[in-house]
């Protein structure tokens, strides 16, 4: 307990940074769930592919040795590529693992199984990389990008940590600020998009009442695609921020992050964008505080116990469920 008080600000700020990443991933779960009532289990892999995109791009740009503002520039490029890669994977998922089932009117549990299958496939495909690459004889050239598929992959370039200002006794670094602010910015953009744009209204309409939306001329297939696309973009952003913070990834890095992000989404009230944000932050901070009090090894136990507690007292999450309703 003393440890928590001694390091209160450090734990809280890094918890917020961790929570920001959860929140960005959670958006993908929450939007797809809000529109389709479908747990997109494979969203964790959308995130994971984003983290690898960051690694590849930085390698590809010959990143090692870069200094100064160029570092930020290269990460900005990596962010765009990660978003593109994650969004593509998300769209592919929608097309291959989701749409064919819905056409056939499959029950939701089946869609979940399909998503689980897709998740296994995507993760394993990443794990198989060097075999695949070996088949086409690219091993030597691409070795730095793809070798040792099941190993942890580190970044060739990191943003140097600089202390910016002090809160309490904690020196807040540029990394903390970048992660938290970028996540908030993405979140605000998405929120505004869903609330104000025509396409966003379509999403809300379908979430609220698919039949009426269809009657009113909303193309629900488009809306579903858009939902997956937006979720993918957010996951790409999350992947970049994750790499900025952690600096390494692995073919199975998505699973635990996915579970946590989904927890955050449920905690905040699934289907609710602002709920995802709140849930992410609450989860990130609670994990840090919890591990400070009873030990890091119990971090995940704290997360899930908190989820159960919240659901007991607020069965629809902290902010309630509503992608369709005004709270959006």
């Amino acid at each position: 307990m003393q440890f928590l008080f001694d390091n209160f600000f450090a734990l809280t700020i890094s918890g917020l940074a961790l929570g920001a990443v959860y929140a960005l991933i959670a958006l993908g779960y929450t939007m797809v769930y809000g529109v389709l009532q479908f747990i997109n289990f494979a969203h964790s892999e959308v995130f994971m592919y984003g983290t690898f995109a960051v690694v590849w791009v930085l390698y590809f740009m010959g990143a090692s040795g870069t200094t100064g503002p160029a570092v930020y520039g290269k990460f900005a490029i990596a962010l765009l590529v990660a978003m593109a890669v994650s969004a593509s994977v998300a769209l592919l998922l929608e097309r291959v693992a989701y749409r064919p089932l819905i056409r056939r009117g499959a029950p939701r549990l089946i869609a979940l199984i399909s998503a689980i299958g897709a998740s296994f496939m995507l993760a394993e495909a990443m794990g198989l990389r060097d075999r695949l690459v070996g088949f086409v004889g690219l091993d030597d050239e691409l070795a730095p990008y793809v070798a040792r598929a099941r190993d942890t992959r580190g970044l060739p370039l990191e943003i140097p940590r600089v202390g910016l200002f002090t809160i309490g006794d904690y020196r807040v670094t540029n990394i903390d600020v970048i992660v938290i602010l970028s996540a908030l910015l993405m979140m605000v953009l998405l929120d505004q998009f869903v609330r104000r744009s025509r396409l966003g209204r379509g999403i809300r309409a379908v979430a609220q009442d698919p039949e009426s939306a269809a009657l009113m001329g909303v193309n629900s297939t488009r809306v579903v695609q858009l939902t997956f696309l937006l979720g993918g973009i957010m996951a790409g952003a999350a992947a970049t921020l994750y790499m900025v913070r952690i600096g390494a990834t692995r073919f199975d890095a998505g699973f635990l992050m996915g579970v946590k992000a989904f927890t955050a989404a449920v905690m905040g009230g699934i289907g609710n964008l602002r709920g995802a944000l709140l849930g992410g932050f609450v989860l990130g901070v609670a994990e840090n505080w919890g591990s400070a009090v009873i030990g890091t090894e119990w971090k995940d136990v704290v997360a899930f116990a908190l989820l159960v507690l919240i659901l007991l007292f607020r069965p629809t999450g902290l902010l309630g469920e509503s992608l369709g309703k005004a709270r959006a």
Binding site: G117, S119, F120, M121
Partner: peptide, 16 residues
């Protein structure tokens, strides 16, 4: 595992 994942997807689609 890859094949298992694929099998799950195919089953879900064709034998829901």
């Amino acid at each position: 595992v890859l094949v298992f994942g694929l099998a799950l997807m195919l089953l879900a689609t064709y034998r829901p």
